[in-house]
Structures are given as C-alpha cells and as structure tokens.
C-alpha cells in the first residue's frame, strides 16, 4: 500500500466515525450531559488548549518515566532469570504471584509510601507495565535456534558474548512487542495514579470534570488520551525500525 494510503485510510475511518457520532447525537437528540457531540468536545478543547496541553504533558511524562523503568528493569530481570536457572526458580513464581495482585488495589498504599507527588504515579505505571516486558523479553532470549547455540559453543563463545551477540539480538523483536504492550499499560497506570491522588494530569481532569458533570471536558481528556496512546506506540514503531535495521534494509549502511 502507498504511504499516503497507510495514513489517509485510517484517518478516513476516524472522520467517518466522528461524523456518524455527530449525526446520531443530533438526530436522536441525546442530552449533551450523557454524550456530547464531537463538535462540543472540540469546542471544549479550543477554550483552553494550553491548559489541556499542560495536563497532557504531565501525564505523558509520568507514562514515559514508568515505561522507561519497566523497559530497563524488565529486560534486566529477564536476563537474570534466563541466564541463571536458580534465580528463575527462586524469583519467577514470586514475580507471577505479585503480578496477580491488582495494581489498582495497591495504588493507595503508594500514596502512603511516596506522598502525593509524581513518584507514586510513576511507580504504579511501572508496576502495571513491567510484567509484559519481562514475559516477552524472556521468551525472546529463549528463542535462539538450537543449532545457533551449538555453533556458538563449538566456537568457544563466552557466555557474555553469546548473550550480547546472539541472545539479545534474537530477543529484540519480542522485546519490542512487549514494549508496545508496556507503553499502553504505563499510560493506564499513570491515569490510575492520577485518579487516586493528583492535582494535575489527564486523570485528574477526568475526575474533577466528572464531579462537575462536565461531560464534554471528560470526553476532551479521553480524546487526548486516545491520541496520546497512538502517538506513543507510533514512536516505538519508529524506534523499532532503527533498532532492527536488518529487518528493513539490505545492508547496514543503505538508506532503507
């Protein structure tokens, strides 16, 4: 498909969806407090664009901080459990058990521990996101074909060289799959954190607007969150293309 088609067709889908929404709300006479039309949401956004932007930036920073922690620590943890079977036996069941605790239930505890600043929100975003990274990264590190490992052994490759020259490269596509899931989950975590206690961010906007039955404002924040999710995942797609050049190019030096 052409480049234009890849961007224009999804955009067409979104426009049709919004149009149908607008028309339906008007024809059926839905009360704006229940479901405002897209035009009202747009109007809401245009009344205080800078203020909305500020809240969006705050939520984005929380998300990215939680995501970065999940990425770094998640990959590091997966390396530990894949390389040392004993560590896996000791730590992995515990990790799975801890993960099955609903993170939302732990959020208030984080407020007690970390206060009401950014830290507890980053911690929740991290906790929700890290599991996906660990699972996919460990899967990837284990996906090296048996004969490749045999070859490495026959060539007397050290454990470290096998890890950084073979296993990590093999794992990269899996790691990126995990990172994309982790990014969406970190965004969820950031919003949950802001729900629990905050004076800023899109989660805070939703919560306060809901208290005032300002449905248009709730939808405005949700719309921003939707765009934010698409942009963050899209950014990861771009990073992936650069991190895995051998999947998209003929030669290391060539254009594409």
């Amino acid at each position: 498909m052409s480049r234009a088609g890849r961007i224009l067709l999804p955009l067409l889908g979104a426009v049709l969806f919004l149009l149908a929404w607008e028309v339906a709300v008007r024809i059926l006479g839905v009360r704006p407090i229940m479901l405002p039309p897209p035009s009202a949401i747009l109007h809401e956004l245009s009344t205080a664009p800078l203020w909305f932007a500020e809240q969006a930036v705050y939520t984005t920073l929380i998300t990215l901080a939680g995501f970065a922690m999940a990425a770094v620590l998640g990959v590091a943890f997966s390396i530990l459990i894949v390389e040392w079977a004993v560590l896996e036996r000791i730590l992995f069941p515990l990790f799975v058990a801890l993960n099955s605790v609903p993170k939302v239930a732990v959020a208030p505890l984080f407020i007690i521990w970390f206060g009401t600043g950014s830290e507890p929100k980053i911690a929740i975003a991290f906790l929700i996101a890290v599991f996906a990274v660990v699972i996919d990264s460990a899967l990837g590190l284990r996906s090296v074909p048996a004969d490749t490992l045999d070859l490495a052994r026959a060539l007397h490759g050290s454990r470290f060289k096998v890890l950084v020259r073979i296993k990590l490269y093999c794992a990269l596509p899996h790691i990126f799959a995990g990172l994309k899931v982790a990014m969406s989950l970190a965004l969820v975590g950031a919003i949950v954190g802001e729900f629990v206690s905050s004076g800023r961010g899109l989660g805070y906007v939703i919560l306060t607007a809901q208290g005032q039955f300002d449905t248009a404002r709730v939808f405005a924040a949700i719309a921003i969150l939707g765009v934010l999710g698409v942009v963050l995942i899209g950014a990861l797609d771009v990073v992936e293309r650069y991190a895995l050049p051998w999947r998209h190019r003929v030669a290391p030096g060539s254009g594409h």
Partner: peptide, 9 residues
C-alpha cells in the same frame, strides 16, 4: 549445518 545458522543481524 544444514540450516546455515547465519546471524541475521
């Protein structure tokens, strides 16, 4: 080997 086992990266 039969599978060339080249490293793609």
């Amino acid at each position: 080997f039969q599978r060339d086992a080249l490293l793609d990266w």
